[in-house]
């Protein structure tokens, strides 16, 4: 599989660099099973629960979350553009679009916080309250992680010569961001569309 010239001791550490993207993708696949399990749990609860919605709650408002969804999903394209700029070694283009992604992600978090504040049920209001906050909260935590990672990458872009030869951190953050997006789409369909 690998070519037979790799006999140099020094190559050992570089090997680790090559493998990081691999490792990160495996982790994301594994992570997606947690979400899958939560989704499966949601479906089971929704189809079998006797009293699904907590008393006094008639359903979820879909308008604001839909706007939020559009913003989060489009940020996937924005981060892609940022990456293209980095490839073309246009570091300022990268920074601008990268920052835009961060802004969109932050807006999503803000929107979600506003939504949470306005709800009349809590985490302990029956199974519905439980799964609602569990799913949106666990996903929100991922969005927050994504934004923080993006911030780190942005700061690192100011270290001279740091991103000269492509950068694992940027690639993996961007992959993570796409992952968080896809998860949200499923989540949105499950929680908001399927009522």
């Amino acid at each position: 599989m690998t070519d037979s010239t790799i006999t140099d001791k020094e190559l050992h550490l570089e090997h680790e660099e090559d493998n990081r993207m691999w490792g990160f993708s495996i982790i994301l696949l594994s992570e997606s099973v947690i979400f899958l399990s939560f989704f499966a749990g949601y479906i089971v609860y929704k189809t079998t629960a006797v009293n699904w919605l907590p008393p006094g709650v008639s359903g979820l408002e879909i308008r604001e979350p839909a706007i939020n969804t559009i913003i989060l999903v489009s940020s996937s394209f924005v981060i892609y553009i940022a990456e293209r700029f980095l490839h073309k070694e246009n570091i300022w283009g990268f920074r601008i679009f990268w920052l835009l992604t961060m802004a969109m992600g932050s807006y999503f978090l803000y929107g979600q916080a506003v939504e949470w504040m306005g709800l009349e049920f809590g985490f302990t209001s029956g199974v519905f309250g439980g799964v609602f906050y569990l799913l949106t909260g666990f996903h929100g935590l991922h969005v927050l992680t994504g934004v923080l990672l993006q911030a780190i990458m942005l700061i690192r872009s100011f270290i001279p010569g740091n991103y000269a030869g492509g950068e694992f951190g940027v690639e993996s953050t961007s992959l993570f961001w796409h992952f968080v997006d896809v998860i949200w789409i499923v989540l949105f369909v499950l929680i908001y569309v399927w009522q």
Partner: peptide, 25 residues
Amino acid sequence: QLYGLPALTAGAVMLLCDLSVGTAF
């Protein structure tokens, strides 16, 4: 481990919420 453990994690998180926060899962 990679495909199985996450399911246990999901269940454990929910159990922990039930135990400590009082959710209804």
